[in-house]
Nucleic acid binder design. Sequence first.
DNA 1: GCCGTTTTCGGCCCGACTGTTTTCAGTCG
Length: 606
Amino acid sequence: MTNQEIAKLLSNIAAVYQLKGEDRFRMMAYEKAAESIRGLTQEVSDLWKDGKLTTIPGVGPSLASHIDELLRTGKVKHFEQVLKDIPASVFPLLEVPGLGIKRAFKLVSEFHLNDPKTVVAKLLAVAKAGKIASMEGYGEKSQQVIIEALGRFKKGQIKENRMPLPYAYTMAEEIITYLKKCPHTIHALPLGSLRRMVATIGDVDVAVSTNHPKDVTEWFTKYPKSVNVVETGEGGASILLSNGRQVDMRVIVPRQYGAMLQYFTGSKNHNIKLRELALKKGYSLNEYGIKPVGKTQNSSRSDRDKTQNYNSKLKIYEFSTEEAFYHALGLPWVPPELREDRGEIEVGLTGKLPQLIEQQDIRGDFHIHSNYPIQPSHDLGSSSVMEILKEAQRQGYEYIGISDHNPSVGNHSKKQIIDILKRRRSKFEQIIASTKSVRVKLFVMIEADILPDGILSIPDEGTNYLDGMIVSIHSVFSMSKEKMTERVLKGFSHPKAKILAHPTGRILGKREGYELDWNKIFAFCKKNNKALEINAYPERLDLSDKMAQEAIKAGVKMAIDTDSHAAEQLALMRYGVAVARRGWLTKGDVINTMEYNEVKKWLNNS
DNA sequence: GCCGTTTTCGGCCCGACTGTTTTCAGTCG
C-alpha cells in the first residue's frame, strides 16, 4: 500500500468524522496524520517494518495500531465501523472543487447515487435536470457551480493544473517589474508557493505595499498582457493573462505589509504552527498583524518592543516588515523556502537556522550540453563551447564542465567511441588555448548512460580523455528498487564517475521517478566521495528538496547543475539553488561552491 | 486522536468568501 493510498484513507475517515460532527478534534488529528504521510520521504511500510510508525508526526499509538492492522490484514475493523453507513460514492466527489463531505453526502443520499464509478456522471445529469436548485440550502447558483465543477472533473481536471516553477517565476517577475514602474508602488513581491519556490505552482499571487491602493490597482489592471479583469476591489485585483493564467494582486498599506507577506506566503502548515506558538504567548495572528488575546501576560521584552506599532483603533500590533513580525514572536526571520513546518520554527527558536546557500556562492556548473558533434545517443546542445564559456563568464563562474551525452553505443564500435572522445578533448583544449578573453576554466566531461546491466556507455580507455564523468539513467526505467539500486551503484562505482545526475529520473507532470534504496546510495556516496545532483532543469528539479535534505543529513555532498542545452539556460541555476535552499543546504554541502583547485582534486580523487 | 518552553490533562489556527441566509453553513487556503 502506498503512502498516498494510506493518506487518502485517513483523509476519508477524517471527512466522515467531520460529517458526523461528533469529534472535531479527532477529525483534525486524522487529517493532520494524512497530511503528514502525504509529505513523507520514506515509505510508511518501511517504517512499519522497523516498528517506527509513531515517529511520523501526528501518528500516535492509536493510529499506529490502525495502520499496523491495515498493513497486516489489508483492512481496519475500526475504519469499517466508521465507514459503515457512508456510501463509498461520496469520496470521489470530495475531489470536486467546491464539494465537501457534507454536500457530497447530502447529494448522494438525496438522489441515491451509491456507485462510486457512476456517481459523477449521474450527479451531473441530476444537476442538469435542475433537481438540485430546489433542495434546501441550495439555489440556482450553487447548482450551476456544481455543474461546472463536475464538468471540469470529468475532463480530468481534478485539481488545478500546476505549472513548473520557472514558468510561474518568469510570469511573476515580469508583472512585478511592471508594478514597480507605478510611481505609487513602494514594495512588490510574490506570495504563496511561488515565494517559497516550490517545484510546481498553482496560482500566481503578488503583494504590493502602497499608500495609494486605488492607483496601484488601476495600474495593475492595465497590465499589457491582461486580457480580462476578473475582479477588482479594495484589497487588490485579479486579471486573466493571454496564456490563460490568472494573477491576483493584493495591495496593503506599508505599516501592515510585513504581516500580509507573512500570512500569504504560508505555507499553511507553517502558519498553523506559528499561530500555535503565538497562542501560547497570548497572541492571535492574522493578515493584518498580531492581536493580544485572553488574559494579558506579564509584559515581556518583545511586548515592549512592539508597543510603538500598536494600533489602538484596531487593537492590533502592526508590522511593516516580516523580520519585525517574526522577531515579535521570538523568532529570527525564517527564509520563505524553509516555511513548510519541517522543523524551521523549533530550530528557529533555538536561533540555529542554517545559513542557506545563495546563488552567488555558486562558482560553476558541471552539467552543460554543447553542440559538439559527438553523435550522441540523446540530444545535442545548441550552443558552441565558446558561446557557453562566454555565458559562464557573464554568470561570474570560475569553471564549467561540458558534459555532452556519450556517443551512441548502438552506432559506434568501442574504438570509434574512444577516437571521438580523443578528438573532442584536443578540440576543446584548442578552443581554450585560442582565447585570451575567457578566463573560465573548462572540465572536459561526459554524461554517460548507466546501461541496464550497470555497465557505463563509455569504454574504460575512453575515460582517459575525460576530467570526470556524470552518470545517469536514460533508458529502461521500470526495474525493481533492488535491481535499479544495483545498476546505479555498479555504474557509479567507476572512479571517474563523480556525479549521479537527476537521481530519480522524474519528469514533473509526466513521469514518476524510479525507486532506489536511498540508504544504500547515500552511504555509497559518502564513503566514495561522490555527489548527487540537484538538476535545475525546469521539468526535473531532481533531487527534490526533501530528498536533498535527507542526503545531506546522511553526509552526502550535492552538485547543483542546470543540464543546459543552450548557453542562456545557464541562468536556470537559480531554480536549482531554490531546491537546495528548500532542502536546508548550506554552501558547504555543495561541490560547485568550491574553488577550481579543490574541484580538480575532487575529480581526481586526490 | 495527538501532544508537551505554563500541561501526562486539557487543550487543539484563523478568517474570507459564497450562497443562502435574516444569523449561518460549508468550503477553502
